[in-house]
Design a binder for these strands. Sequence first.
DNA 1: CACGCGAGTTTGACGACCCAAAGACACGTT
DNA 2: AACGTGTCTTTGGGTCGTCAAACTCGCGTG
Lengths: 238, 238
Amino acid sequence: MLSATVEDYIKAIYALQRESPTGDAAVTRLAAALGVTNGTVTAMTHKLKGAGLVKAERYGGMRLTAKGSRLALDVIRRHRLVEVFLVDVLKFDWSEVHDEAERLEHALSPALIERLDAFLGHPTIDPHGAPIPDAKGRLSETPAVAVNTLAKGTHATVARVAGREPAFLALAAKHGLRPGAACTIVEQVPEAESVTLVVTGHPPVALSHRTATRVLVHPVAAAGRPASVCRKGSKPKV
Amino acid sequence: MLSATVEDYIKAIYALQRESPTGDAAVTRLAAALGVTNGTVTAMTHKLKGAGLVKAERYGGMRLTAKGSRLALDVIRRHRLVEVFLVDVLKFDWSEVHDEAERLEHALSPALIERLDAFLGHPTIDPHGAPIPDAKGRLSETPAVAVNTLAKGTHATVARVAGREPAFLALAAKHGLRPGAACTIVEQVPEAESVTLVVTGHPPVALSHRTATRVLVHPVAAAGRPASVCRKGSKPKV
DNA sequence: CACGCGAGTTTGACGACCCAAAGACACGTT
DNA sequence: AACGTGTCTTTGGGTCGTCAAACTCGCGTG
């Protein structure tokens, strides 16, 4: 059986690979993500290599093997299903579920996960809008764009609020920023790297572009109304 | 934070104390219950003593302190609530929930347990009929008698089916022996240490007296019918 | 009463995971 | 080409929970 520690490493490597341009994870980054020292990561890397979960060579970055990726997706599936359960069934708040899920994801048997999945109605996204891999480890990512790339006046539907910091998640919740909510870009100031958006019925919220990359939306095609829609790459005409 | 291992030891000590006439747990019994060697238990005993969870002296049995008992009841509460969840909500079979709960009981935060308790409607017994300690660690045990002490013809309500062996639990389930079921003692042969009982709608089942001590019932006072009721201590008049 | 034996304890060692600190490497600068 | 800095690896050491094997104790028996 694979230890909880191994699962945590694999999950962290998976996440680092996704946000790395070269597609491989660096020791120092991984150490920071897991809160351990570099030496500890190097030691664990040997173990993971021995288990056939990662490929790595001395002084080079590491990369998950097919087997490693499969395990990562398995752990992510467990994590996200638990989050759905905690929020939808036990009525936990959005911002507090992460740590709880972090512990639980290592204690659920495959049988339990499949029953939980069925009980929850086979959800496809977690409470933050992150996609849930299926039982075979398939992940279907809906293309979505970050709000910092959108022009003033754009109408959109919130697809996902990424990030784990409770403070940020609490802010998002306070302003109605949850998957499915309809929002509008009310201000876009490139010079200040600031974007302001509003969800109907909630106070507007100004985000730095850096923060705004964590808020992903599906722009809504203007149906008979003159709202400008600005897709990825095009510049706002303000 | 207390490790899962410590919790397992405390829970096992609690169980051993209950079934020990002297009220304290022996090293060898504990080692057998946990599947470790005696030396390991001795080492852990020192640790538990240091943490103020047990009292023990060299070559004498060990005993939980108030703090230790409280922890044991806490773990038992978690365990039994998880079992209720697995059976009632996720529709797991009776006999397979134990191992699952064994792992989960160490991964649930106090907040999660309280929410789960509320979601389940504050159950007072688990699927096997075992009482669930409340959030303050209070355990209310309903007095119940083992079927081996009852006379032929006695009508009773199943209160609890103790024991963890999947095979025994599967047998019990097959014969309708679950908390709340109405049963009747159809045969009682002291010479053969055998008792046979039947739950309406299920095939009869013969149990050795040893096994029968695990089936606890509430005898039903004969209401207008001539069924003999035999309380603890009285001899059957067959 | 001395003996023996089961129950309990100690000892030395191991695997998993971790750290601190020292060493080895890679690579851009000068 | 030599340096310096940041990244990675190694080394020695620590904790937790475990085992096997040697040792010690308490107590009933011959």
